[in-house]
Write a protein that binds this DNA or RNA. Structure first.
Lengths: 162, 162
DNA sequence: CACAAATAGTTGCGTTCGCAACCTTTTCCG
DNA sequence: CGGAAAAGGTTGCGAACGCAACTATTTGTG
């Protein structure tokens, strides 16, 4: 039995409905979800997405560096650098040169940064939950299993440090 | 045994691993997949992502307008406008003012545009297949069911014309 | 020890993007 | 009919981004 989409045919106009094309669907979905979340970050905390990712990465870690953030989030290092600079200027983080390797900067949240983090994280998790609530528990499990699978295939899983 | 993520706790530092946060995972995955696909579009056909999406939308349609593309792809109308302008300049599309409503422009692929489309679509589908091949057929079905679910919840499904 | 290669991080520059403002044409309604 | 509002589409402008080049420090190797 054929699956949902007819097989590609070697004729003049091969069938492609963009709305059924998984790469496009992932992009559209990710953009929509991000937009909803970014409302919280921006309107209520004055953060943009790179800044939120830096906060979220530094928050639970100890002795975190910009390089580590860039690798684990797959953001370009200049994006990370600029986000950190802005967060430091806002008094949410501190940058201290590591005396063991003076190229590195140890990153930490300030008291104000930890307060913002503690306030923001529950809201983010709540939004995630209300989004995922449209699926049954079993369906969600299968969906995240699919994500795991794709991430592993593409080398995005945690273990891979590039 | 704990499930993957410990439940949120109302203490100073609620646990959030960005790598387990679905909105972030979707963004990272979509970016990675897009990057791989964009290689084809750019290197072999000189298209960027907005241009590819316009081509892919106009290809199978008849009497398509910029507005329709913007709605169905959820791209900003300026992005669509600029992509169309560039494609027209390259001789891949034509813009004809609709005589019934002279605000609209009817979009069509030129012969060269159809040729490029016919060449590109199979490559795109092939890439999609090789990506999705990391899942079993049943797992893929469950995964796309999850996508359907999220898209419907967010109002992204085809039916919704905003 | 010295010098080349590698790593952490920053900055200048050109490109892309989204917002707002704008032009044109059509629709809505008194 | 006629003017206001709406809709399709384009453009100016400022912000954000990635690439490449750069500085500073460390590591590797003869």
């Amino acid at each position: 039995m054929e699956s949902k989409r007819p097989a590609p045919q070697p004729q003049d106009a091969p069938p492609l409905q963009l709305g059924d094309f998984v790469p496009f669907r992932l992009n559209r979905l990710a953009a929509e979800v991000s937009e909803h979340l970014a409302e919280i970050y921006r309107a209520r905390f004055g953060l943009d997405i790179p800044e939120w990712r830096v906060m979220a990465t530094v928050g639970p870690e100890r002795g975190c560096t910009a390089q580590h953030i860039a690798r684990s989030t797959r953001m370009h290092k200049t994006r990370v650098s600029r986000a950190i600079a802005h967060l430091e200027k806002r008094g949410l983080m501190t940058r201290v040169t590591n005396s063991a390797d003076r190229r590195e900067m140890e990153l930490r949240l300030t008291r104000a940064g930890r307060r913002l983090y503690a306030e923001l994280v529950p809201l983010a998790l709540e939004r995630e939950n209300s989004l995922l609530a449209c699926m049954s528990r079993e369906q969600l499990r299968a969906f995240t299993a699919g994500l795991d699978c794709l991430e592993t295939f593409l080398g995005l899983r945690k273990g891979s440090a590039d």
